[in-house]
């Protein structure tokens, strides 16, 4: 079935213009949980970063030490109220939001991974096939994306390789990294799991990587939004809300 879709053979499968089921309930629930969770995590995280907007490599780092990144002007908080939770300066409140939603983030990710492993979503839909990873195929997809040429008909039912790499990168790269680096900043956990900071190159390195992983998630979000808008936002958002997706019609030459 999916082989046919990949090959673009649409004779026996669904046709362009048809309404088809696209996203499973588990995917849809996780997606919208993430919308809320990641927004809260990012905005409360920026408030926490406001308290000391300097980033270092290594185990220690404070005002007298060399920072690889200094955000904002002297003593000014770099992130304005519209970008933070809460809007007024309060790292204490931000921590309450950050830690509560950290539990949601980890719990939802774990549930989604277990569920998607069990129902075959990971293997069938997200795992890149060997042929897809060939330079020629990758280049072809990059060129198609650059020309804003998106798959139509049944081919639009499966993720293309750039989607698979982006989603896989978030699922198995950025999200685990942001979680592990967050854990490594906890002095309590560091006592019980000292390898955390060892692996990450020290607590301040973990803090820097936490910031970079969050920045990566923001970048993913921006590209994701752009692709949704370009691919037809109503159809895309409907499919993520209800599961139903109208297959784009094949262009007549």
């Amino acid at each position: 079935m999916s082989q046919e879709r990949d090959a673009g053979v649409a004779d026996s499968g669904p046709q362009g213009g048809e309404l088809v089921t696209r996203h499973r309930l588990s995917t849809r629930l996780w997606h919208w949980t993430n919308v809320v969770t990641l927004a809260v995590m990012l905005m409360s995280g920026l408030m926490i970063l406001n308290a000391h907007p300097r980033l270092y490599w290594g185990e220690y780092g404070a005002n007298f030490d060399h920072a690889w990144l200094v955000l904002g002007a002297d003593d000014a908080e770099p992130f304005p109220g519209w970008a933070t939770i809460p809007a007024h300066y309060s790292p204490a409140d931000a921590r309450i939001w950050h830690f509560a939603f950290a539990v949601v983030l980890v719990g939802a990710l774990a549930l989604y991974l277990v569920w998607s492993l069990a129902n075959g979503h990971l293997r069938r839909d997200l795992m890149p096939r060997l042929a897809e990873l060939s330079p020629a195929h990758l280049w072809h997809d990059i060129v198609d994306h650059a020309r804003l040429k998106f798959p139509t008909g049944a081919a639009a039912l499966s993720y293309n390789i750039l989607q698979k790499l982006a989603y896989g990168g978030v699922l198995f790269g950025l999200l685990p990294l942001v979680i592990v680096t967050g854990m490594a900043m906890s002095p309590g956990l560091d006592a019980g799991l000292p390898w955390l900071t060892v692996v990450l190159g020290g607590r301040q390195s973990a803090r820097s990587l936490h910031f970079l992983a969050a920045a990566g998630l923001v970048l993913f979000f921006m590209v994701h939004m752009a692709m949704v808008v370009l691919a037809g936002p109503i159809n895309e958002v409907r499919s993520m809300l209800t599961g139903w997706y109208r297959l784009p019609r094949e262009k007549q030459p």
Binding site: H52, Y60, G61, M185, R203, Q204
Partner: peptide, 12 residues
């Protein structure tokens, strides 16, 4: 030991 301030900085 490493002293971790709630603001984010650390000193040993």
């Amino acid at each position: 030991t490493r002293h971790d301030c709630v603001e984010g900085w650390s000193a040993i």
